[in-house]
Amino acid sequence: MLTRYVFRRVAIGLIQLFGLVIAVFFLIRLLPADPVSRFVGLNSSEEAYAQAERNLGLDRPIMTQLGHYLGVLPGEGEGLLQGSLGTSWVTGTAVSTEIAQALPVTLELLTLAFFFALVLSVPIGMLAAIRPGGAADKGVFVYSLFAGSQPEFWWGLLFVYLFFFTWGVAPAPLGILSPLTSAPPDVTGFVLIDSLLAGRPDVFLEAAHHYMLPVATMVFILSGPIIKMVRQNMVRALGSDFVLYARCAGLPKWRVALYALRAAMAPSMTLIGILYGFMLGGAVLIESVFSLGGLGQYAIRSILAFDYPAIQGVILVITAISLLVYLALDLIHAVIDPRVTF
């Protein structure tokens, strides 16, 4: 039952991805942009322009371009169906290689941020829900309004000013490893994991130190909505008949709290999934402030350069990861709540 469900979801996801590839392919080409002159310059000769256009393949009919991108044209090398995301027009490197460098940073940043945000927000949200309108609840309300109402890059800059410049407890916002540190051999792409695999705790600590501020900034931003959501769901769960009955049955306080928490967490999973998918591309401001070189930054760079293969690759990867995250959270939801069936 479960494997069939997962299989069906993955199959549907692949169809969605394929539809997305086609849509993005055409939508990009609808942009009022001229990538060719972006590469050869506005004052180039007509020959140079035509040459560049030919190099990029933009002189061919659009359906042929699509066929080339998908890899269905015979004798034209590998395309999407063979697992190739194409070559970046700007750097000439394979898009998949570039994404493989940028993605782990973003994933590490997001996963750490979501982990700490949840660890902090769930108890705070529960505390606020116990006495709606009480001091804790009011404090939480002010905090989430305060943290959420100002842009994240501003918080990032403020944190850099305070923790790095004024107090000096954080490293400079210049990437994950200092230029002098030799990076551990690339096994998974995730610095924190690779450094441990290579037996280099010093590199691990250095990376963790560098992640500290960006993660703190994101936790600061993310915990606002998560606290609010946990509080809302918790208030609803605490007011439900089964929690009331659990109290009437004389269950210990901690057990009643667990009953309510489980009921509150099940619907929260959905929002966390949506936030995670959104942040994959949306963490760009944090990445920029701290020069992390993540996926968001890569996406912005590609868009500004009209680097079509790179844009398509980024969208595809973000969507695929989002779909997987949604699937994982739906499965977690089903584990928490037995009423969910496949």
Partner: peptide, 19 residues
């Protein structure tokens, strides 16, 4: 509660923990 005083309520399915 639940030891010396037991209670049954109107909406039994709502009173049971669904999870």
């Amino acid at each position: 509660r639940g030891k010396d005083i037991g209670i049954i309520v109107q909406n039994p399915r709502g009173a049971l923990n669904p999870m």
